[in-house]
């Protein structure tokens, strides 16, 4: 029994069907626990006041925004090398989820930035990189939507995903460089991990777990949907052929 057996659409459907409700439930429980814990039962941080509570949304969504892209990259590579349809469809399914995660990270970051930095937006390297990542997601999803033939769409988006990944990393470094050029050393650090105490850390971990589980559930749900869409297409094509013959 190898891992690749799950690349069979039928096997994938049968395996994930009973798992999916539990995954959604676990995601819900972890998210609610993490967020309620963070929102009601953590103290306020001395400098940031109650805005520190935004961390429970911002950090997990930002992590998932990047991880979703990495997952898409891996799935695209698997598709190109081994031609497993489930892989390509999982990459497609992850796209919009990753985009929403990026949007949440950007929105919560802006809302946190307004009282803390006195501005909704600064061209800080991290913020800028995320905006670029958001544009990559837009392009990737748009390319999927624009192409009719499913295999061509899967191939082209996979190529775009790989090239895009290289350029995303490149942009990250370019943006770092560019910002240093703008104001030497005095960049706003968003790295709160250094001084995050245990009181904040544990609910944050729970919250991250919730986001990961939710991401997995959504990707599986959406992959199942895409597999069904494929199947409908195939059945309809067969029906048309049958009519043509008769």
């Amino acid at each position: 029994m190898s891992f690749w057996e799950y690349a069979n659409p039928k096997k994938f459907m049968v395996t994930t069907a009973p798992v999916l409700p539990w995954l959604f439930a676990a995601a819900g429980v972890a998210l609610v626990t993490g967020l309620v814990w963070g929102f009601f039962f953590t103290p306020e941080e001395a400098r940031q006041g109650s805005t520190v509570k935004i961390i429970y949304l911002h950090v997990p969504s930002a992590m998932m925004a990047i991880n979703a892209w990495v997952m898409m990259l891996v799935a695209s590579l698997i598709w190109l090398v081994r031609r497993h349809h489930v892989s390509a469809l999982a990459a497609r399914a992850a796209g919009p989820v990753g985009m929403v995660m990026t949007l949440i990270a950007l929105a919560t970051g802006a809302i946190w930035g307004q009282p803390m930095w006195g501005t909704w937006w600064v061209w800080d390297p991290r913020l800028t990189s995320f905006l670029i990542l958001f544009l990559f997601y837009l392009g990737y999803i748009a390319l999927w939507e624009a192409i009719d033939d499913p295999d061509t769409a899967a191939d082209l988006t996979a190529v775009l995903c790989i090239v895009g990944s290289v350029f995303a990393v490149l942009s990250r470094y370019a943006v770092n460089f560019w910002n240093q050029g703008l104001h030497q050393g005095a960049s706003l650090s968003m790295d709160k991990q250094e001084n995050v105490a245990n009181v904040f850390y544990i609910p944050l971990l729970v919250s991250i777990a919730g986001f990961v589980l939710l991401f997995l559930s959504l990707v599986i749900l959406r992959t199942r949907t895409e597999i069904r869409v494929r199947r409908i297409r195939a059945l309809e094509a067969r029906a048309q052929q049958g009519e043509g013959r008769a």
Binding site: T51, L103, A107, I111, P115, L218, L221
Partner: peptide
């Protein structure tokens, strides 16, 4: 405290986006 509006709006925006994503995925499924 003073930042209530910011914290609440951050949670509201995120939860609306997440709920929208889940709802759209579910409806399409």
């Amino acid at each position: 405290g003073a930042y209530a509006l910011y914290v609440l709006s951050a949670y509201a925006v995120s939860l609306v986006l997440l709920a929208g994503l889940v709802w759209l995925s579910w409806r399409r499924a």
